[in-house]
Computed example of a mutant assay.
Amino acid sequence: MLFATHLLAAGLLGRRLRLPVGWAVVGAALPDLLDKPLASLGVVDLFHSVGHSALLAVVVLPIAFVGRAGVAAALGWSLHLFLDAFHVIVNGRAGDALFLLWPLAIPPDPLAIPPGEFVFYYLWSPSFFVEVAIWAGAAALALRAVHERTAAA
């Protein structure tokens, strides 16, 4: 999934669950904010590593006990991982979902495409259309909210 879609999905879910939306968005941003620079600098070989590992749950999930902000951040992080795993599976690369077990397991043939190039690879893939549907749904919700506000005024 593209970075902006992770943020949008976390914001929508946070709002739906009446959690602090900003913290949900921060949690959703963390995997990419951690892993993309590490891979770009050559510290790790994969763009889905430390921040995308479900094993990091031992650190992230206790944050949920900090309060509603912690719950929102942990939820955003978890949603990011779910969406990325869903994305690779829908695109026919189920083996790439092994990133969830990094460093214990590594995808056998991971896409080693930097984020900028990835966008061109991703366009018109099956999960690209899932993202289009997410954005269309968000736009419909926003338009409905505007309509309801203007009708109430």
Rank of each mutant, 00 (worst) to 15 (best):
E148G: 06
V119M: 06
L7M: 03
L83N: 11
L61N: 12
R18H: 13
F47C: 11
V43D: 01
G95P: 01
L2D: 02
L75M: 13
L41H: 05
L56K: 03
V66M: 04
A142M: 15
F120I: 11
T150S: 12
A57L: 15
G95N: 08
D32N: 06
G116P: 01
G14R: 02
A28N: 05
L56T: 02
L13T: 07
A97G: 12
S127E: 11
A24V: 12
L17I: 07
V59I: 07
P126E: 07
L98Q: 02
A85L: 15
P62Y: 08
A138Y: 04
A39G: 01
L46N: 13
G67A: 01
L100N: 00
A4I: 13
P62I: 07
F120Y: 11
W77A: 10
Y121I: 02
G67K: 05
I113M: 11
V66K: 11
G51H: 09
W135L: 15
P114L: 04
F128H: 15
W23A: 15
F47G: 05
D96H: 15
I89T: 15
G14F: 01
G92V: 10
L55A: 07
L33W: 13
H80P: 06
V88L: 13
E117P: 03
V25I: 13
A151W: 11
G116Y: 04
A69G: 07
V50G: 03
H87M: 09
V88E: 08
V59C: 13
L8A: 11
A72G: 10
W77C: 00
A24Q: 04
K36T: 09
V60C: 01
